[in-house]
């Protein structure tokens, strides 16, 4: 009998786990839908910023702007986007593996690496690294980041680049390809890159207020902002999607486990009954 009680308890606890993972799966699914929707909104903004920059490049040398100037790379800064919490499949480990690989490369070529961590997982990893500066650790931006959240990060990035404290800024994030495919990726943010793709009508008659330089400053800021924003939102969508998948397979595994345990439980119960019957009939035989 002892065996069946133990099995019964285990079935109960696995059932509880299954309920939890199922709930987490549903939560992640609804968050993913929202994040995906959100990620698409930024597209119009990027296109508008790009088209403005294209037209500006016709009348001014965009590549002379401090944020566009390329330098010899002595220090490289990584902005690493991870989640605060685990249980999201390989979401965090993919990004962190990419970071580790990049740092090893940097070490080989004598480039100093620095890290800005977004999300607790990246911060935890970066703190353990030797010889790598953790410049700042942001605590993640929740499920609905606003432009106010990214602004301080962006301004400190631009400042560091303009002051020549860093010579290259990479964003390590997870690209959201589809519900099933998400890829950890590195995007180079600074120096800002820009190529005029098409010839545009002359801007000779356009008035600039207050000046071309200030307009360029503002447009550049917006271009960087939208890139960072996009990376952040795609990571968010990926996180939820990977968490959903992880929780889905956890739920499936729990179901399998419950099936196995139920089978074992039934066998144990049946054999206990058979044994009891044998004992009773054996006892009755002896009484005769």
């Amino acid at each position: 009998m002892a065996n069946t009680i133990v099995l019964k308890r285990r079935i109960g606890s696995v059932k509880n786990t299954k309920q939890i993972t199922k709930a987490m799966e549903l939560v992640a699914a609804s968050k993913m839908r929202r994040a995906q929707e959100f990620a698409q909104h930024g597209r119009a903004y990027r296109e508008a910023a790009y088209s403005l920059l294209t037209r500006l490049s016709a009348i001014t040398e965009v590549n002379d702007h401090p944020l566009f100037v390329k330098r010899n790379i002595k220090t490289r800064l990584y902005v690493v986007i991870t989640s605060n919490r685990g249980l999201a499949g390989s979401y965090n480990s993919n990004v962190i593996r990419l970071l580790a690989k990049a740092i090893i490369e940097d070490n080989k070529s004598g480039v100093k690496s620095q890290i800005i961590a977004i999300g607790k997982q990246a911060a935890q990893f970066a703190r353990r690294l030797e010889g790598v500066d953790l410049v700042a650790a942001y605590d993640g931006y929740g499920d609905q980041p606003t432009s106010n959240d990214v602004r301080p990060l962006l301004s400190s990035l631009s400042e560091m680049y303009a002051d020549k404290k860093v010579d290259d800024v990479q964003i390590l994030y997870t690209e959201f390809k589809s519900n099933i495919v998400q890829i950890a990726k590195s995007l180079s943010l600074l120096p800002a890159r820009f190529e005029a793709t098409e010839n545009v009508d002359s801007l000779a008659q356009v008035t600039f207020e207050p000046s071309v330089a200030e307009v360029l400053d503002s447009v550049t800021e917006r271009l960087l902002e939208v890139q960072l924003w996009q990376a952040l939102l795609e990571s968010l969508a990926s996180e939820h999607s990977m968490r959903m998948m992880a929780m889905k397979s956890a739920t499936d595994n729990a179901s399998d486990l419950i099936d196995d345990l139920t089978l074992a439980f039934n066998t144990a119960r049946q054999s206990a009954i058979t044994q009891e019957l044998a004992e009773i009939t054996g006892g009755a035989e002896a009484m005769k």
Partner: peptide, 19 residues
């Protein structure tokens, strides 16, 4: 609202890029 003060834009406004 621009850096140089408030402006009103109506049809036929001259081409302008501002902050």
């Amino acid at each position: 609202p621009t850096l140089e003060g408030q402006i009103g834009v109506m049809p036929g406004h001259m081409p302008l890029i501002s902050v």
